[in-house]
């Protein structure tokens, strides 16, 4: 069985949010209800070299949806078994079981499951199941004008792009074994020591 995953190129991503909007449009989500979100990271510092100040600001963007983890904490934690792994390896929610308690959101280190206020139940990225069964990419991937997103068998993506699975501010991949491959922005490597923080927390 194939395990699908996303590739996220944080070097080329311009943070335009087209993927976010394409996802909302395809899945008919209300404003503020994000299955895919752009996390804006900003940071930097300055140096004083004998009275000459040099500044080193930086910014990069991480486009993040559900990572359809191999060891999903949301599935383990869900009290109703509504959160489950489908036959294509995607993590999905059975709406007939969900009680909308939000515990999956707590358990998910990526904050992927979101409450759908219209139904009172949780909702999340389903990998655009209808599109991938027609051999099309998820809508976010095809919408990206920078070609910063890719999708496919995680083993193929690994061969193509390497095996980096984490970047600031994401949690350690050991926690849930996320099916994502990341091309890390050069400034992400020193993000934690260069005062990096999430700049658009209120949007997420």
């Amino acid at each position: 069985m194939k395990t699908y995953g996303f590739y996220i190129d944080t070097v080329n991503c311009s943070g335009c949010k087209t993927c976010q909007v394409a996802c909302q449009d395809k899945n008919d989500l209300e404003p503020g209800h994000l299955w895919r979100k752009i996390i804006d990271i900003e940071g930097g510092d300055w140096k004083n070299d004998n009275g000459v100040f040099s500044e080193y600001p930086f910014a990069y963007h991480v486009s993040l949806a559900c990572n359809h983890c191999s060891d999903p904490l949301c599935v383990q934690s869900c009290p109703t078994q509504a959160m489950h792994v489908t036959d294509i390896g995607a993590v999905d929610i059975d709406q007939d079981k969900c009680i909308g308690c939000g515990y999956c959101t707590w358990a998910c280190p990526y904050d992927a499951p979101k409450l759908d206020k219209r139904t009172g139940r949780m909702s999340k990225c389903d990998l655009c199941y209808d599109r991938i069964t027609k051999n099309e990419n998820p809508s976010c991937v095809d919408a990206c004008p920078m070609r910063a997103l890719d999708f496919g068998d995680i083993e193929v993506l690994k061969e193509k792009y390497g095996n980096t699975r984490s970047i600031f501010p994401l949690a350690s991949p050991e926690l849930t074994k996320p099916n994502i491959i990341i091309r890390p922005h050069k400034n992400s490597l020193k993000a934690s020591v260069r005062n990096a923080s999430i700049a658009n927390r209120e949007e997420l």
Binding site: P79, T80, G102
Partner: peptide
């Protein structure tokens, strides 16, 4: 705190 208490027995 349940947004859909009708399914509460599933908990």
């Amino acid at each position: 705190h349940l947004n859909y208490p009708r399914h509460a027995f599933n908990a």
